[in-house]
Simulated assay, not measured.
Amino acid sequence: MLEYIKLFWEGAPEGEPSVILYEVDTENERLALRSIDIFADGSTRNIPDLYDGVIEITPIPTVEELNAHVWGEEFHACIIEQAEFESIWESRSSSGAFLKSEA
């Protein structure tokens, strides 16, 4: 089963994404299948393999964990629909309104 998460990173450093979308395989240790970095200017970067070249594979936390600030006060998240993820993946762009936090 797949879960789609929109993660907001408030105060993201220059050059880092302010929003990250994850496609999470909940039946495979919550590993990300794909992710999309969205930057403050609305540009995006599709990442077909989040774990390519990494030393340690880390599961994606649940929305509840992210919103409990287990990973830091600057992160909060919500569940999104697959269609939203796919739309941004295919268009490789994001509207400015998308960057607004829903939390």
Rank of each mutant, 00 (worst) to 15 (best):
A32G: 10
P13K: 07
A40N: 11
M1E: 09
F85G: 08
F39H: 10
Q82S: 12
S95H: 14
E81A: 09
A103Q: 12
E64F: 08
S101N: 13
E10F: 09
I60Y: 06
N28D: 14
A32S: 15
A40K: 13
E10P: 00
F8A: 00
T44H: 06
K100E: 15
D49L: 05
F39I: 10
D52C: 03
V19E: 14
E56M: 06
E10G: 05
A32L: 07
I20G: 03
E74M: 08
L21V: 12
Y4K: 03
G11W: 15
A103R: 13
A83H: 04
V24R: 07
W71Y: 14
S87E: 12
Y4P: 13
E73N: 11
A32T: 10
A97W: 04
E27H: 03
I80S: 05
L2N: 10
R30Q: 02
E81N: 11
V19N: 12
I57H: 01
E3M: 05
V54E: 15
L2H: 08
Q82D: 15
A32C: 08
R34L: 05
A97C: 00
L33G: 15
A103G: 10
I36D: 09
S18I: 09
P13D: 14
L33E: 11
E16W: 03
R30M: 05
E86I: 01
P59C: 11
R45P: 06
A12F: 05
I88H: 00
A12Y: 10
E3Y: 00
F85K: 04
E3Q: 13
D49W: 00
V54R: 08
E27K: 06
A77D: 05
F75N: 03
P17Y: 01
S18H: 02
I36R: 04
S94Y: 05
Y22F: 15
A83V: 07
P48I: 09
P59K: 06
V63Q: 03
F39S: 01
C78V: 15
I79F: 05
A32I: 08
S43D: 15
T62W: 06
S18F: 00
V24P: 11
A97S: 12
H76C: 14
I5Y: 04
I55P: 00
Y4W: 14
K6T: 03
S101F: 01
